[in-house]
Amino acid sequence: MAKLKRGEIEPHEDYGFFGPGSVVWKVWSYPTAPTVGFQRAVVVEELDPPLVAAVHATQGIYQRSRTRYDRTLRYFAMVAFAGSREVCKAADVLVKVHSKAIGRLPYGGGTYDANDPASQLWIQLTGWHSILYAYEKYGPGKLSAQEEKEYWEACALAAELQTCSPDDIPRSREGVRAYFERMRPQLAASPIARQAMNHLLRSELVLPPTPRWAKPASLAVAKAQRIATIATMPRWMRDMAGIRQSRLLDLLIVPVMKTAFALAHLNPEVELRLLGRISPSTVAVIAPVKLGIPPRKEEVLTPAEARARHGYAKPAEAHLAFRARQAARVFGDGEAPSEQGLIESQEILGPLS
């Protein structure tokens, strides 16, 4: 990645939905977020049968590991840091992208739909919980009680950009724990879930090609991140998925990662260069925040205000006719769904290859 030049960085239109001083910017801008936190989220998600059925059917994580990671991380970063118009546009096109991920469950009967509110709630909570957990374990530590309250209120606000209801978002750590306990009987480590989880734990798949002399170091970094991510997963979840790692490794990796992340966090340009290795398209999203470049309008909006200003529907109500046509193609005609949403998303979330 070429050296960043401050004058070449495009400022955001506004502060989006959170802004400077928010706990979201504090937690999501720490280097644990795009690494261990994000990897934990996408690995844990696969235990949900409808979600992993959609992932397996599209095969994106296997055929385009690097670009899939890049595009997904870019979207999550946009919600936290980008301008409100850009985020509304991304959330809107994501509904069309997810309309392709529908079909019949491979185990136990029934159907899946990536736009289903229950699936979106699972994604939202595993994502936000994982980012916070990684920050606490390998970063500065636990938030204050007031910061944690603000964090889960922010999670509920961000849920307005998904098809789930913000009313279903717990507003406390205890509420989040209760949600995961309710979900636990519904989770399953099916063959496709185990395959996906083990694949997503291979951090080296999202790194760019490296010269032969640098490969040992690159693989060592990938191995360390894998160990760190597994160390954040509860034992029952590891046992369910057949993921083995000793308690000794769980302990030893903590000081290693805390030190590495603290050192990286000392220099914003170093952080951005490291981010560019795992998610090039996310750099433009977070660079203005890291380098203190103010937006064109220094204001924070709510999702409702942003939708009204920029002319977007609530995600749960967006593209209903298109989604109905997709369902008719798949369940009625037995055809493959249209990839129109994926094609349109490239302008916003980055190329597919």
Results as ranks from 00 to 15, higher is better:
1 M>E: 08
9 I>T: 10
10 E>A: 11
11 P>S: 06
14 D>L: 11
15 Y>T: 13
32 T>H: 15
37 G>W: 12
40 R>W: 08
43 V>Y: 09
45 E>K: 09
46 E>L: 06
47 L>P: 02
48 D>R: 07
48 D>I: 03
51 L>D: 03
53 A>T: 02
57 A>Y: 00
59 Q>E: 08
62 Y>A: 02
71 R>D: 01
75 Y>H: 05
76 F>Y: 03
91 A>M: 10
99 S>Q: 03
104 R>Q: 13
105 L>P: 04
106 P>Q: 05
110 G>I: 06
115 N>H: 07
116 D>F: 09
117 P>G: 05
119 S>Q: 12
122 W>F: 15
124 Q>P: 07
129 H>Q: 08
129 H>F: 11
130 S>D: 04
130 S>P: 11
132 L>W: 07
137 K>Y: 11
139 G>I: 09
142 K>H: 14
143 L>D: 02
151 Y>M: 10
155 C>N: 10
164 C>N: 07
167 D>F: 09
168 D>E: 15
168 D>P: 06
176 V>F: 11
178 A>M: 06
184 R>V: 03
188 A>N: 05
188 A>T: 06
188 A>Q: 13
202 R>K: 12
204 E>T: 01
208 P>N: 07
216 P>E: 09
218 S>P: 01
223 K>I: 02
224 A>V: 12
227 I>Y: 00
240 M>Q: 05
242 G>S: 04
245 Q>V: 06
249 L>I: 00
250 D>I: 00
251 L>M: 11
251 L>P: 00
251 L>T: 12
266 L>P: 01
267 N>D: 15
271 E>I: 05
272 L>G: 07
272 L>A: 09
273 R>K: 15
274 L>M: 14
281 S>V: 14
286 I>P: 10
288 P>M: 15
291 L>F: 07
297 K>T: 07
298 E>W: 02
301 L>P: 03
302 T>H: 04
303 P>D: 04
307 R>L: 01
310 H>Q: 08
315 P>R: 04
318 A>H: 09
320 L>G: 01
324 A>C: 00
328 A>N: 01
334 G>W: 06
335 E>C: 00
336 A>C: 00
337 P>V: 08
337 P>N: 02
338 S>V: 05
344 E>Q: 07
345 S>M: 04
347 E>W: 02
